[in-house]
Design a protein around this nucleic acid. Sequence first.
DNA 1: AAAGATCAGGTTGTCTGACATTATTGATGC
DNA 2: GCATCAATAATGTCAGACAACCTGATCTTT
Lengths: 241, 241
Amino acid sequence: MLELERPDTLVQRVVNSIREEIASGRLLAESRLPTEHQLAEQLNVSRSVIREAVSQLKADGILISRRGFGSYISKTPAGTVFRLPSKNGHTLDLAQLFEMRLWIEAQAAGIAASRRNAADLRRMEKALEVMAANASDFDLSAAADVEFHRAIAAACRNEYFLAFHDFLGSQLTAARRTAWENSAALRGGSMDAQNEHRELFAAIALGDPETAAKCAERHLQASAGRLGMVLPNSVYHRSQD
Amino acid sequence: MLELERPDTLVQRVVNSIREEIASGRLLAESRLPTEHQLAEQLNVSRSVIREAVSQLKADGILISRRGFGSYISKTPAGTVFRLPSKNGHTLDLAQLFEMRLWIEAQAAGIAASRRNAADLRRMEKALEVMAANASDFDLSAAADVEFHRAIAAACRNEYFLAFHDFLGSQLTAARRTAWENSAALRGGSMDAQNEHRELFAAIALGDPETAAKCAERHLQASAGRLGMVLPNSVYHRSQD
DNA sequence: AAAGATCAGGTTGTCTGACATTATTGATGC
DNA sequence: GCATCAATAATGTCAGACAACCTGATCTTT
């Protein structure tokens, strides 16, 4: 099935153009941007287009504008948002994304093992119970699975880390949905998953970071297998070269 | 020194408004947005304001619009960009940010130890040499330091992970610049840092993930100390509770 | 009756021009 | 020298228009 790709809108082209000016160093940090009128004339587009483009760059923290004064490049021209780099434009590399999540999740498990308090453990255990009680209900048990892993990330007590964990999760489920619509592959191995969860939980409860991290890694690796994904080699148990 | 709080621009308020509408579930995924004319009338602003707001949300992957048809909520209403959550609006928690970087860097070191190839090792070594040769030149040695850690992250062979590593680095240097303008505190401990780097490099070259991760963690912890930062307790060497 | 062509209405994309609000700057007066 | 004030200019917002395009209904042809 073929897809027709369309030319970029003017706004998109202006955004790319300004981004490149900055990346190439022709526009330096904290230097002033030409006025919107000038930009409109230089690029031969209307001021509305310029304003929409600048509006996007402002939202990314790349530009700053002050009414009555003008717009200038931010002190941090790299911006304040993180976008997953996508080469061709749309498709994400599911395997690499999952691999990164595996690493984050493993690190989270290790840290959680040394920082978790009683409330964290209760929250994890509760999620496990819900998962066990609703093993037949896919939506419920999937939600409990997310909650279990989220409780682990939350036990690290770092809001940025937690936010990034959530971000990866949402990106992954979204990408998976668009890739294969059949996530039913999970159903088969739910018993194994439950055991892996229990192991992981035990290591965290015991306060054993190394074991927790390894349990998490094994669990995620197994999950990938259940989803039919092929990851690069394992991190810790790989043959030496 | 006090700061004058200004009311948000109309565009910003519209953006927040639509975001909230989605977060609260009043606007469902894949459902259509009112037309720009309707939105303008409902919110009592001009269409230009609506267009700028929608433009931002499109850039974040929250909205999608098709000419002649309309705009609708994306399948992934969480968006495709990651923003560091900032409560009050501007200041980031430097300690938490640094802590997260420490974790990422430690994980990167461990993975790199099992994935690095000859070219990776050469790249790291080269960075170390540059750093040693220009110990007195702050800018040069700082750049080499960045390059060293970047080579480690690159050796993990995961472009998303590398991109996130870079993002954290840029955010951190930016935040540090605005916090204290004097990063001269680094100068004193450059000899220690050099030793830590050598240790870390040796572990990676040897292919010992656990040691590499621990070296990286110690190094970053020491760096934090040299910067006068107070981090939460270490992950692995913390007293049991 | 079914398939294709045409048309009408609506929506986003872009352009134009205007006014409001705010910051900079230089002249003025003392 | 210093405060005041007008002139200038930039962004923020508004209003209206046309272009390009999509959808669905109607009309035409087979």
